[in-house]
Computed example of a mutant assay.
Amino acid sequence: MPSITFIHHDTRAETVSANDGDSAMYTALLHGVDGITGECGGGAVCATCHVYVDDNWLGKVGTVGADEDELLEGVASERLPNSRLSCQIKITEALDGLVLRLPERQV
């Protein structure tokens, strides 16, 4: 079972188990990770699941699609080159140990 470590804005780390095929956003919500709102439930329409992918994982999480790219333009915290919507990151065994940093705020 893959694990994801969420690094909170205050630098506190929280590691949770994920299921293959689930999104990083769903995993965060399932485990009650503060800092992921996911208002649209993973439909990629709200951008309240914004995360910063740790540099070591950028090449492994897939590319940003056009819809995601557009939503990232309106995130509440600064968009960075490693910004992603966690609802668009699908978990696989290859992502075991994934590190995602949470922005200061989602809304």
Rank of each mutant, 00 (worst) to 15 (best):
S3M: 09
I7M: 12
H8G: 05
D10N: 15
D10W: 08
A13T: 12
A13H: 14
A18D: 00
D20G: 00
D20K: 06
D20N: 14
D22Y: 06
S23F: 02
A28C: 04
A28F: 01
A28W: 01
L30C: 06
G32N: 13
D34V: 01
G35V: 01
G41C: 09
G42C: 14
V45P: 00
C46E: 11
A47V: 06
A47C: 15
A47F: 02
H50T: 06
V51R: 06
V51K: 06
Y52K: 07
V53P: 05
D54V: 00
D54A: 14
N56M: 10
W57F: 07
G59W: 07
V61M: 08
V64P: 06
G65I: 08
A66C: 04
D67T: 13
E70Q: 13
L71N: 01
V75T: 15
V75R: 05
A76Q: 08
S77H: 04
S77I: 04
S77Y: 04
R79L: 02
L80P: 01
L80K: 15
L80H: 00
L80Q: 12
P81V: 06
N82M: 07
R84M: 12
R84H: 10
R84A: 09
L85A: 02
L85H: 04
C87G: 07
I89W: 03
K90L: 09
T92V: 00
T92Y: 01
T92L: 02
T92E: 09
A94Q: 14
L95D: 05
L98F: 06
L102S: 10
L102P: 11
P103C: 03
P103H: 02
R105D: 10
Q106V: 02
V107C: 10
V107Q: 13
